[in-house]
Design a protein around this nucleic acid. Structure first.
Lengths: 237, 237
DNA sequence: GGCCGTCTGTGCGCTGGAGCACATATGTGC
DNA sequence: GCACATATGTGCTCCAGCGCACAGACGGCC
């Protein structure tokens, strides 16, 4: 993670973008822009966090890793959210693991500052809680999707959720890592991705996925994607 | 749902039990005791809720039902929590479905009262948020468990989580309903429950499950149970 | 250009759980 | 105590996804 000096961050994060001007102006000096690289661990399970992060172009996955090493994603946060909700929810330590899924930037804020602002009970608190509510929906839907839907449907969900959170049509991510996210075998991702390539929805070359035809992905995806998207739009749109 | 007149509720709910005496005394007149019967729907997906509920002896499951009718549980709430978190998180409508999994009582509070109390930012808010954080862990773990663990392991998790939230060793629940909760086939539950009976962990007769040997269940359950339990104890213990 | 590490594609056999069919057991009401 | 609805037990077949093995294919580096 690298920290910029004298940052002039745009309102690249939707949560911060919701704030009234005065509140935003007050918070601005307390935000620092940082860069995350692919695969960087934002925090570990049970870890302490000194900052919360408001991604602007980065995407961060929330993962849980089992004792035997297998893992699965429970949610992902981009420019529509915040990483480190336990800091204002009161947990202190993090109940999961956060890994940068797509390199990019974020704005960070000291935990103490966040907590003080949160305690003031203004719009900031309001939007942080609404985001948390949306995240709960995302995690819930992941739970249900894991139980009931095929790898191909879930891959589509994952691609669409990620695509919604990056500015380009290209995702940098190997099939191996996607498999870890989805909690499935790498080969399973290969065949599912192969089918999506066959119908021209994506192209996949050594860790570079191009979204060629979103429409096709949306036809293949399970309802979970739309439920999550609708809820985010409703709560934060 | 039946409402008691002139209730004299004990601090049967751990969340309310956390409150300082003065805060509890103030809230007491605003609480009404209600009875829930097995299978009763507390709220539907997308529905509006006029009250939040603090279970004392009832258990309520949070479910999501797919378009094709299949469903799965994402979490459950007993005397350690509150049903209707969307009311203070800001969602308004409920992103899931809540069904009474074990008949019993709860204390209800008008949504408006809850929201006003919450906005005051005192201990009540504090504990509601900590509970929500614990619930997020539970939902997350359900997501991972759905992906990675066997029906038998999940059945054990479900039995233990339920057992922790009722005063007796008997659970009233058919295999059919458990199957809906876990998002698996009824026959799958029959087989798994059969194995647990064979080793003497439970006995199962027409909707009446007796927990005979918790120890055995804890040996069979996946790590998910302990993770969730630890997090609830840590946050609310 | 050649080497090597990483990433992707493919082909097994195996297994857990789905879907279906049906046999049996246990309440409940008449 | 009989009839019937409900709950549970059991035995198939089928298939998605796992685990494993290995064959390309691409890309960076010397």
């Amino acid at each position: 993670m690298s920290v910029s000096i004298n940052p002039v961050p745009p309102r690249g994060n939707r949560l911060l973008g919701k704030l009234p001007d005065e509140e935003y102006e007050r918070l601005l000096p307390k935000l620092q822009e940082v860069s995350f690289s692919l695969g960087e661990v934002v925090y570990e399970f049970g870890g302490h966090l000194d900052y919360v992060f408001f991604p602007t172009t980065a995407i961060v996955s929330l993962l849980y890793t089992m004792e035997n090493g297998t893992s699965a994603e429970m949610g992902l946060t981009g420019n529509d959210g915040v990483v480190g909700i336990a800091l204002f929810m009161g947990g202190g330590t993090m109940p999961n693991r956060a890994v940068v899924q797509s390199a990019g930037r974020a704005l960070r804020m000291k935990a103490k500052v966040l907590q003080d602002e949160f305690a003031m009970g203004g719009k900031f608190q309001h939007w942080l809680l609404r985001y948390t509510q949306a995240l709960i929906t995302q995690i819930s839907q992941t739970a249900v999707c894991n139980r009931l839907h095929s790898v191909e449907e879930q891959l589509c969900r994952w691609l669409l959720l990620s695509h919604d959170r990056v500015p380009s049509d290209e995702l940098i991510m190997t099939q191996e890592l996607i498999a870890d996210m989805l909690g499935v075998r790498r080969e399973g991702v290969t065949v599912a991705a192969g089918r999506l390539q066959d119908v021209g929805a994506i192209s996949y070359v050594r860790g570079h996925i191009k979204i060629l035809d979103r429409q096709k992905l949306e036809e293949t995806v399970c309802e979970c994607y739309r439920v999550v998207k609708n809820e985010f739009d409703r709560l934060l749109g």
